[in-house]
Design a protein around this nucleic acid. Structure first.
Lengths: 157, 157
DNA sequence: TTGACTATTACGGTGCGTAATTGTTG
DNA sequence: GCAACAATTACGCACCGTAATAGTCA
């Protein structure tokens, strides 16, 4: 059915393999952070060169961008991000094993769990957006008051 | 010179003076965090009891709520928050010294600087809201796809 | 071969959590 | 005088930054 399912993970057909510094610059993380995330099990670089250089493919980059978003934007801890990514990995597995011997009930369970977690993630992000919007309003109000006082002071000169 | 002119800072007339645990519960921080913020110069509790218990007034509580918002919602570091609060303190001082001998030019400078910093804060928060909204959209899209796959799987049973 | 890049190891700093100990308050 | 709370001190953990040292790649 879906023929181009896991082409990006084929060691031969993998598009471009990048080294850690190039990846870091492009994604907006430091090499140190990337190594740390690997150490914590958040990702496993696609390959290593003969001299043990880490090599990343496009899928790895996407994963790193996701990690960065969860960290910088949502402010989640590495442990929490690990949970999110494990989730993603699980649904991915459900997709990959679509034609395998995995039971249908099992796949449904995986997808149902994923749905629940995505809903919880959405709820968390939603409340964060709300609080940030509130902060923005508060600061904006403060700005208005300061501006007013400045206008007053400037006028009375 | 630096007299405590604000009414809420008058040791006698200060509304209710609370102890650290009550403050922590009400604001949503831990006593440990509050002590740490004091150690870092983010606030100075209004008073101490005879036995050296920290005592907080309403102004302190507001300051702590601001700290929490900057920390949890905006994700700023303690050093950055210190800058924001110093800013706030400066404009406050400009207000307090409104009738003092401080030169008009000086007050205008303080207010102008505050305005600039508030604008920078707003820009930071704005971009954060944008990125979070983008994340929400991405996850929502993922959710849609998973739901679709689930419906398919359930139907083909 | 050389210069730029990388791996590994390890120590440092922030932002607290978590006792442990001792003193304070009602 | 007792239970509940607080102060101080100190060690520990997460999340990396920053060398330092040694090996790799074009």
């Amino acid at each position: 059915m879906d023929s181009r399912m896991s082409t990006t993970h084929d060691p031969d057909a993998a598009g471009t393999l990048r080294r850690i510094n190039e990846v870091a610059v492009e994604v907006g993380l430091t090499p140190r952070a990337i190594r740390y995330y690997e150490e914590q099990g958040l990702l496993t670089p696609t390959a290593r060169s003969a001299g043990a250089y880490r090599l990343f493919d496009d899928e790895d980059m996407e994963r790193l961008r996701t990690i960065k978003a969860f960290r910088d934007d949502a402010g989640f801890s590495v442990a929490e991000i690990a949970g999110m990514l494990a989730d993603r990995t699980a649904t991915q597995r459900a997709k990959v094993t679509y034609t395998s011997a995995a039971s249908e009930a099992e796949r449904r369970q995986i997808l149902t769990d994923a749905l629940e977690r995505l809903d919880r993630q959405l709820a968390l992000i939603e409340s964060k957006v709300q609080r940030l919007a509130r902060m923005r309003a508060d600061i904006s109000e403060r700005r208005q008051r300061v501006a007013a006082r400045l206008a007053e002071t400037a006028a009375s000169e």
